[in-house]
Design a protein around this nucleic acid. Structure first.
Lengths: 225, 225
DNA sequence: CCCATGGAATCTGTTAGACAGGTTATACAG
DNA sequence: CTGTATAACCTGTCTAACAGATTCCATGGG
């Protein structure tokens, strides 16, 4: 029940601190001891949050010196594109554009009634989760996964699952930044998914592919305005 | 300078443990205290490694129960699929059409001189292997992989690696059937790859995408006439 | 006045031990 | 054989301490 690990609060708190205090890349964070004091928890928990932040490429710890902002969380979303990076492009989404759009197209062409029901159910679960203001990452993933499943081609699933780890990481970071999503954003997200599902139900391949591309395009924009 | 944090050893040690002991997804790792004992370090360091492993999606910690393998590091890219459905021959190629064509397009747009040299080298290796009548699956894969690498987008690599297991299986089966490939087939395969590499060298996105699609189309026909 | 040099203060990395609260397995009772 | 209670175990968290690295500052010499 109490799934909220304390270090999640520290993680979110530090991200919020970077954002609200406008800490630039290279700026130093308060010391672990100081952060522990601020958040009212032990140094060990703060440390765990810092380890995760470093693992996510947001901060960097230098022994004896302190922890420093490596990339601001909002910039971090672009940092999945490695070294030679194209600033405007988010790696995982670039692949999803072609991969999931094609999956949606094939799903619209081939879906069996049973697979369609499976997709509808996924849609219902996502709707429920979003309307109760949950993060709903799991439900989002599940719906997209069920669409890939409806292609009848397990290779899509393989590629999909290989990517989702990154996608989820990006999404979590995004939600951490803009903590509460306004209702109109939730409604929009819901509508985008519904259009995709509608097109698959109507067996409209081009419509499904277009709706999926639109959804991913908008999703990326929501993450990096 | 001494960048070797102790937790790096713990991280690598646990990954190695999962691999060498063949721990399946869902298997339980030794307890933190036990791991600390094994690696000869304190529990805090083992904990740090486990936090990072969890952040990377390899393990999952359940309070009171232990840490569990969530996805095997080696399979992390490949074996997510429930294994119920064997991929059809068509399946992998269907995904490769969209995925690798897009990768070739982006590679043509973005490739650095260094990446181009890397691709040329891969091409040379493939040429050598094919002309000496080897199966050349490894070289084939390597060339395609280097093209995906030249996109500068690691997500393409992930998806690519996730698929290749199947592709290779199919290819082996294909070669087993028609044991010796006639010289003109080898020449054709070589030429198809060369056209792709040429287009990437010439920074011709559409040409590269088309050449890749043609190559995959022909490749599939060679396997299932 | 400027600059080098040597501490002193500060910070992360690591260790040890302890307890709370959850989970699992065992042993006992019905 | 089944169900339950209890004990053993495990992760999450806290406290206290020290080692090694870095930064800052004051002091002294040029």
């Amino acid at each position: 029940m109490n799934q909220t690990r304390l270090s999640d609060h520290a993680y979110a708190g530090i991200v919020e601190m970077i954002r609200s205090e406008g800490l630039e890349v290279g700026a130093r964070l308060p010391s672990e001891a100081r952060l522990a004091e601020i958040f009212g928890m032990s140094r060990a928990v703060v440390r765990e949050a810092l380890v995760r932040l470093a693992s996510d490429g947001i901060t960097e710890a230098r022994r004896g010196a302190g922890s420093f902002v490596k990339s601001r969380p909002s910039d971090r979303l672009a940092a999945f594109v490695p070294s030679t990076e194209l600033p405007t492009t988010l790696g995982s989404y670039e692949v999803r554009f072609v991969l999931e759009a094609e999956a949606a197209r094939l799903a619209a062409t081939r879906r069996s009634p049973h697979e369609m029901a499976h997709i509808e159910e996924g849609m219902a679960l996502l709707r429920e989760a979003l309307l109760s203001s949950e993060p709903a990452h799991a439900e989002d993933r599940e719906l997209h996964r069920r669409i890939a499943l409806a292609t009848g081609n397990s290779a899509f699933l393989m590629a999909f699952d290989a990517l989702w780890g990154d996608v989820e990481k990006i999404m979590r970071a995004g939600v951490d930044i803009s903590r509460s999503r306004p209702p109109e954003v939730i409604a929009t997200m819901l509508r985008e998914h519904e259009v995709i599902v509608d097109a698959i139900r109507a067996q409209d391949p081009d419509g499904a592919a277009l709706a999926m591309r639109w959804h991913l395009w908008e999703g990326r924009r929501r993450l990096m305005p």
